[in-house]
């Protein structure tokens, strides 16, 4: 094999290895969260999940004195009651996207250790109607995370 040929072959091997590494690294974090419907289909008590959905309107309760937070996450097909102890991030609110980390409990609610607010790609000038976040979140939920 010529010098050039070996160089090309070596490059191809490195390329394949690198592509594989990158791909496997990303796909491991690819299913970043499960949806309420996926969780409800096969809930395992005590298992750690990352759950993503929209905070259902009228379900958010927060006690600033005890820091007890409860709400329902929904994807339009199923909903999951979530409880948490702490202060949620700024963008967290009803009709907005959120991703929560925690465990599904035997008592039938999701006990979250961390609350993350999911932002949409929409930006708005002040007094521009509906809070951004809702549409983008629903879009994410409708695409199937492979």
């Amino acid at each position: 094999m010529s010098r050039r040929g070996r160089f090309v072959a070596g490059g191809a091997v490195i390329a394949a290895a690198l592509a594989y590494l990158i791909y496997s690294g990303v796909t491991q974090s690819a299913v970043y969260f499960v949806t309420p419907a996926e969780l409800q289909a096969a809930p395992v008590a005590g298992k750690v999940y990352r759950l993503g959905g929209m905070v259902a309107p009228g379900t958010l309760r927060w006690e600033p004195t005890t820091l007890a937070l409860s709400f329902t996450l929904t994807d339009g097909k199923a909903s999951v009651p979530v409880r948490h102890h702490g202060t949620p991030p700024d963008l967290f609110g009803e009709k907005r996207g959120a991703v929560v980390e925690g465990r599904w409990t035997a008592e039938g609610y999701f006990s979250a250790t961390q609350i993350l607010a999911k932002h949409s790609e929409e930006y708005k000038a002040p007094h521009d109607g509906e809070p951004a976040g809702y549409k983008g979140m629903m879009k994410t939920l409708s695409t199937d995370g492979k």
């Binding site: 690819a30 970043y32 999911k118 949409s120 790609e121 879009k139 695409t143 492979k146």
Partner: peptide
């Protein structure tokens, strides 16, 4: 676009 992420899509 390909996976579910916390990061929002491009604006």
């Amino acid at each position: 676009y390909w996976w579910r992420t916390l990061h929002q899509p491009p604006s």
